[in-house]
Design a protein around this nucleic acid. Sequence first.
DNA 1: GCTTGACCTTACCAAGGGGGCAAGGTTGAT
DNA 2: ATCAACCTTGCCCCCTTGGTAAGGTCAAGC
Lengths: 133, 133
Amino acid sequence: MNIGQAAKQSGLSAKMIRYYESIGLITPAGRGDNGYRYYNGDDLHRLAFIKRARDLGFSLEEVGKLLTLWQDRQRASADVKALAGAHVEELNRRIAEMVGLRDTLQELVDHCQGNDRPDCPILRDLESGGCCH
Amino acid sequence: MNIGQAAKQSGLSAKMIRYYESIGLITPAGRGDNGYRYYNGDDLHRLAFIKRARDLGFSLEEVGKLLTLWQDRQRASADVKALAGAHVEELNRRIAEMVGLRDTLQELVDHCQGNDRPDCPILRDLESGGCCH
DNA sequence: GCTTGACCTTACCAAGGGGGCAAGGTTGAT
DNA sequence: ATCAACCTTGCCCCCTTGGTAAGGTCAAGC
């Protein structure tokens, strides 16, 4: 199977498959006489695994670790759980940060009259560094 | 005032001030005989404005628009409100997305025993594309 | 055989939002 | 005079993905 087929089946783009190969996330695909990469069922399975892990927000570095754990039949599920748990924590941190930003901004928006006059609490906040809203 | 002082006062880094100048976000600073950039109170005010807007999560493009509105004494607060409101919406979208990821992942983590055996629902999900958890 | 279109290859540019380092000039204090 | 701290420009790096270009290959239809 060529890279285009593998891309369609896995949900990744051909470009990304090449990229993942170039950074060593996946082992280099086999090549045919024409120089084309080819992929078998196992390769496809790995690509789909990566796709799903990316969709869940894991970084490529984390995906690499997950791949290693996945391939390791002696793995302890505790290791996987720790990795995923750390990612959940990271997501929670980022969510909390963004919620804080949103709330601050939403409050400013709520207090802006939004008419054709220039007076605006949003700009006042930006001007004053948010120290005295 | 030199760039280092301006950086300290505004909370930006000297590097970023140069960068913002290079991309046209701010007009080029004046130069002294020695070639050093110098900054006055107005410049500082603008830099602090940018810093605050960045802290609130506005993109550099949005910051540029906010700067323009800020300088425009004829602005309508509705324009500012629309810009900030759009950013709030964007934040909400991103938050919702991340919350969805976190919840999915949290559920997988909750169902993983986290012991020294290899069996792990997290890896099973990644393997199967999350279609049958 | 020839053309056409779809596919593959490598290689480079772009983005945001900076960090870091190098090589050199300037300033101010000791 | 020397030294540290500052400034200048310029370049490379992070990360991940999309785009685009120039060229090779394959399969179909004529």
